[in-house]
Nucleic acid binder design. Structure first.
Lengths: 343, 343
DNA sequence: TTGTAGGCGTTATCAA
DNA sequence: TTGATAACGCCTACAA
């Protein structure tokens, strides 16, 4: 029942605990034979050091935490490997902590900082209007990824990597307008969204205006409260609603790729075709977009570059090579099969 | 810099550390007013308890860990929420630990058990032929989910929830045979796979034999070493290879849904159609299968039931309500648009 | 090169 | 209801 500790190992080896500690931590000042003997005993008795005890003593753990808000978002998953490799290359270890929808990522970061003696934190997704007081509590470097920081004071205490959601959304909508679509529906986030969902909706709206089209509330579908926003299911329901209610439109812009897939399916289920009857566009540029049939027109966020830059900014901060920066990347409009130009 | 500890709080409040401890842990034997006073000071000074120290002292943490091997597998992600809710309902907390491809989940479980004083572990995915000696080291209850345990001794020390991969694979292949397909290609796992990949291949082979079809190695594509098995990319490449080499076949069975999507795309890119020119089937039953065009014929693993059962078995073990069990669930053949019967 | 001892921040067990 | 105090398992000066 009671598991073997460093003391047990020391006793079994007939040495002091400090010697065992030196052995497991690869300290230079230890006799090679002693070390080997100890390691052998450790192996035989299946000794595993207790990380809580280690973290408690340690002042520096050389680990970076990645906090992910929205674990169901495939876009984030696609970034994880890049983070991992980049951090490994900096000879740091790496833990992922999932943040639930209603959980406060800043509080979590603070807890983890203490528990694991972190060197730095990367926050993926999540809300972008944190109280500045709260942000100030984080003593170690951290960078927001995917989320631009809004408050002026917030910008001074952390770094961020993001795209300009409004601008990119504008870009996509503008393309649809220029392609001859006059009635462009949008599948938006929840009505009370104050994050990227809101920005993307604004971009859509502005592009319509600049192209001389009116903003028609009938063509805007918000996500209901009881469904996961940005999900395929939400996209399906939203498109079905438009179709069922016989709204007139020729293009449908879903603010996430997943929603776009759902929308495509709803259109097909209604006996219509994409893009012949309805053009459909998404946002994010996840891998599936290239494999889906029809392949999806979308805005691609440069995810690898963004992840790499986030890690770079973080280590610049850690090694005091620079102050806080807020990098904004440019998305790329990817034209594929799901949209067509109206003649 | 130096963060505030329980001692600081005690000093600020003019009480002993033990009293502060009682306050933050909601102990009954503490004056209500004292508690409120302490909590106020804690709030004001942003005190956050150190989890490493807590874990070190605590004997029982009421937390369950979920080890996920293969984080890129959407099927697993779809289970997470079910796990979370079920575990929350048992008034336990829940942490997710990602296990890398080449990492040993048993070793990780052992480390976590010590570090976090876990109550139990659920292992999702991963290898199914662990050394029994290793399995015996885990002192707390654990259940494998998705992975049937093979070794006889292994079966005696843990529980598991799984499907019969061979049988289900047989079921799908048999359907394709009965639907009139005589040349059925398969996109398999790596050649050296000894887990579900191997079982699914075996099921395919057996079904062919029982239907009087020969096993043609030309129609079997293994995943190369440098690519993620079970991935869309792998499916795409595998199907493309068959097509490029002008293999003759009318149906293609990919051993994961993701691979099937990749295969569909490769077929479309080659100017052919699914299912008119080639029937395509997958395995797992992930959500995307219903949204993809054409929607995907597949074997659906009853994921919610499996997750729920895993949690049930785990708590039965924790509360000693029963011994080790090995539940095998039945998959369901879902016929959708991607396959057709040959007349 | 090795051993001794103190302390990391908590919780738990006693007394008071 | 509270306060000392001893662990928890490990690391790290410092001493030997």
């Amino acid at each position: 029942m009671e598991s073997v500790t460093i003391k047990d190992v020391a006793r079994l080896c007939g040495v002091a605990v400090s010697t065992v500690s030196r052995a497991i931590n690869n300290h230079p000042d230890i006799n090679k034979e002693t070390r080997e003997m100890i390691m052998k005993v450790i192996e035989e008795h299946n000794y595993i050091p207790n990380n809580s005890a280690r973290n408690l003593k340690r002042t520096d753990s050389k680990t970076i935490a990645l906090l992910m808000k929205g674990i169901s978002n495939p876009f984030f998953h696609e970034m994880v490997e890049t983070f991992e490799q980049a951090i490994k290359q900096m000879r740091h270890s790496f833990i992922i902590q999932r943040v639930e929808e209603n959980e406060d990522e800043i509080l979590l970061a603070l807890e983890l900082e203490k528990e694991k003696k972190l060197r730095g934190v990367i926050i993926l997704g999540g809300f972008n209007e944190h109280g500045e007081e709260q942000l100030l509590q984080i003593k170690i470097p951290y960078v927001f990824c995917t989320t631009g920081i809004v408050g002026e004071l917030g910008r001074q205490v952390c770094s961020s990597v993001s795209i300009d959601d409004l601008q990119e959304s504008y870009k996509l909508t503008d393309y649809l307008c220029k392609a001859g679509h006059k009635k462009i529906a949008i599948l938006a986030a929840r009505k009370d969204d104050i994050s990227i969902g809101r920005q993307r909706l604004r971009g859509y709206r502005r592009a319509l205006a600049d192209n001389g089209l009116i903003y028609d509330e009938e063509l805007v579908v918000f996500a209901p409260q009881d469904i996961v926003p940005f999900s395929m299911e939400n996209g399906y329901n939203g498109a079905k609603k438009l179709l069922d209610e016989k709204k007139e439109f020729t293009a449908l812009y879903a603010i996430s790729d997943n929603m776009a897939f759902g929308a495509c399916r709803a259109i097909v289920d209604a006996g219509k075709r994409v893009p012949e009857d309805y053009s459909v566009a998404g946002f994010d540029g996840i891998d599936m977009g290239a494999y889906y049939c029809p392949s999806l027109t979308t805005i691609r966020q440069p995810r690898d570059e963004m992840a790499l830059e986030a890690v770079k900014l973080l280590f610049d901060l850690i090694y005091k090579r620079s102050g806080h920066e807020h990098k904004v990347f440019e998305g790329k409009l990817i034209l594929r099969e799901s949209t067509r130009e109206l003649s």
